[in-house]
Amino acid sequence: MKIAIIDYGAGNIQSILFAIERIGFEAFVTNDWNLIKSADKVIFPGVGEASSAMEKLKESGLNILIPTLKQPVLGICLGMQLMCKSSEEGNTKGLNIFDVEIIKFSNEVKVPQMGWNTIYNLKSPLFKGINDNEYMYLVHSFYAPKNSNAIAYTDYETEYATALRKDNFYGVQFHPEKSGIHGEQILKNFLELPINY
């Protein structure tokens, strides 16, 4: 199986590579259109600030490519947020795969949310073998409000969408590569999804 991790200079790529290695797969890191297009699975990572990450994505034209992909695509953290319509962070226009507007937590809570929180109401083969209220590691200041693409929820200030899905596109706000054995299970589930989604 060919697993492509999209490299656009804004991701914690090494951690994802190692996590994939630990669960017995091998991935490659690339920004090459053809390699990404021909991969069986595509992972779209991201950390840092939304508008500058989006700029980097545009530099390589990947913002055009990603929404046209037909194989399963998994956005992680900022990757998931960039797959949405927009983000309040840096007033950023996203890839509009998910019709969701990313907004900031208020000052009623500590920002960023940093640490382990539960995910629940799990609705996707992505969560095969994962119990409701399993803990995942999260680090983020902006979030996806509840919406029709939500396939999992987390509570922090409010109940929000912690995972999204539309057709072949998946996004998770938490870091499966840093969330212990249960996070690794979610990555494995993604890699084992049928290729036509």
């Binding site: 090494q14 590691y137 680090v139």
Partner: peptide, 11 residues
């Protein structure tokens, strides 16, 4: 750091 990142699955 690389060896640790390879071996452990928490931050």
């Amino acid at each position: 750091v690389k060896e640790v990142a390879r071996a452990i699955n928490i931050p």
